[in-house]
Design a protein around this nucleic acid. Sequence first.
DNA 1: CCGTTTTCCAAAAACGTTTTTGAATATGGC
DNA 2: GCCATATTCAAAAACGTTTTTGGAAAACGG
Lengths: 346, 346
Amino acid sequence: MGEPARRLGIRDVAEQTGLSVSTVSRALNGYSDVKLETRRKVEAVAQQLGYRASFAASSLRSKQTKTVTFMVSKPWTKFVDPFFLILLDGVELALQAQGYALQIIMARQYETEFEIIRNSVERGRCDGLLFGRTRPEDERVEWLQARGFPFVTVGRTDKSDHDWVDVDHYKIGYQATERLIRLGHTRIAHLMTPLRYTYSKHALHGYRDALEVHGIGHDPALEIECYVSRKTGADAVTELITRGVGPTAIFCGNDVIALSAMEAMHKFGIRPGPDMALIGCDDVPVAAHVGLGLTTFRQDLDALGMRLGRMMVAKLNGDAGPHQQLIDAELILRGTDLPQTGGRAE
Amino acid sequence: MGEPARRLGIRDVAEQTGLSVSTVSRALNGYSDVKLETRRKVEAVAQQLGYRASFAASSLRSKQTKTVTFMVSKPWTKFVDPFFLILLDGVELALQAQGYALQIIMARQYETEFEIIRNSVERGRCDGLLFGRTRPEDERVEWLQARGFPFVTVGRTDKSDHDWVDVDHYKIGYQATERLIRLGHTRIAHLMTPLRYTYSKHALHGYRDALEVHGIGHDPALEIECYVSRKTGADAVTELITRGVGPTAIFCGNDVIALSAMEAMHKFGIRPGPDMALIGCDDVPVAAHVGLGLTTFRQDLDALGMRLGRMMVAKLNGDAGPHQQLIDAELILRGTDLPQTGGRAE
DNA sequence: CCGTTTTCCAAAAACGTTTTTGAATATGGC
DNA sequence: GCCATATTCAAAAACGTTTTTGGAAAACGG
């Protein structure tokens, strides 16, 4: 028999405070043309009533959502790559400091990513977009650029005129390979992350350049592309062993591949480290605790995330750009980067 | 000098098709009072123009967002617990099938969770809410119940009249403990997840009940609460060893704790398994590959997620409920659940 | 062939804000 | 004391949809 439970609206605050709706709105949104005393009263009443502006209404009228969407891709979430998660933390921090909210959305597969982006952008569900796993020719980037919608990517593309942050995978590939060469290795395999991603190519170039600089030619049989499920690091190791192409060291594109590779080595009775040097990338939590400790590269993801967030905010505030940031990874020496022994069985 | 680039609106579709705005809306939303031929034409034009309804406008008018928010807590994202991530996959699948979108939002700490929920609900940013890490007395649950806002939790509270899905941690605790007792152990420690969470208490009860049923009293010195950073599983093991309370087996509330415990054991020269039986919970990806293989419990998270999603949809569709689902975990026997040897040094 | 129902569409109201515009009052300079 | 300006607020328009309401034309029943 009661009221039909209307939504608590700005009108209620206006009535309760004896002011007009417009004044209440301006008071709550921090405009300067409202007396301090009035603002106080409005805030008090709003607080007491528990009023908050309807998101739909305010974003319809003001044409901004004060929200940034980060799109994550499924393959990574499945195999629980900490990469994006830790990144998100920094992003959120940076956005929040400027009054923006972060909202995360999952994409089941690459084909749907584009659709998700279109939907988010065309329906006006966010003011800016963040995503990773960029490809050299990335249709998402092209579409967003054409529309002039604000976005920052984690990773580069072939186009250079958009905002991005990225880890210097070229340097990682170069440093890892050089480290292994210095340890006396000459037959160094590279278990690559999927080459469709730009960063995989960067790592590959670093790897090849390091070999070349030291007078070692690269051998296609030692370069194997790995995937999350189809062909894992273990599969690649099996391939290397059974084919007898005889590497004595392996540089893996990421730790998941390295971990998987280590597992296969155990099956073959090969000790990661002493029998087969190994360097990974990402420094996943278990890397330090597996076997002798996996030598790998650590990235300051918190910093990367913060930069990502700040770049987004800058763009949203009208800063033209393009802003681009390349950050270095740090080589974490542990137990698996051992010298070439030569005295191995076989 | 061109047009000021107005947003593409439903009006444009109406003009292009020669119909009224209302008819276009009804056509696009699948109402039955529009001729098939007309609907086709509208859809074609909308498609061609690339029109999509403004989210703000449509949700303002229709009072629904067709969106469900899942709130994840930071501690878990930091330590990259795959738990919620895999869960999310199932949730998304179930929601999407019913035309709902899933949006994820991070909470930096528990204090902000409540604020985030209030903001999402009061500003009308979503139609339903999903979250985990429930506590026996959970203010989030109470507040949402009082407001009558649709939500489903992952985990139970002391109130029984709301929707939830949960893993039967009582049974896990009971089974793990019983397994260790059957192996001859009588001094069985329990490294607990934080007791503020309901599920930790369930596991503890299962542990204690199993002991009691087999005539073993529980020893407070063997029950140690572990946290993600402050007091880890390693710290707890150190405490157990240095205090000399002499357990021969440990049941850990989750695998992260177990992994950390194993690390400490190595420091003490204790072999997980032979010297100290160990059972974890969650079956994180590395569990199978660490040492002898960690014996643990696997939960069908995909199924749990799907149920969670379907429950949410049911609630959104007006199904009264309450719906509650308890799912069993499966004991995965690997290498660390070994019999009591008795012949250990000291 | 007339009255009734069904089918299909359009006009207008409504959603809850923010922004624009304007106006009353207070303040300042001289 | 008067004009110009600053301060503070209110009325009304606008945002882009969906929903409500109504009405014309078509189909139907007898």
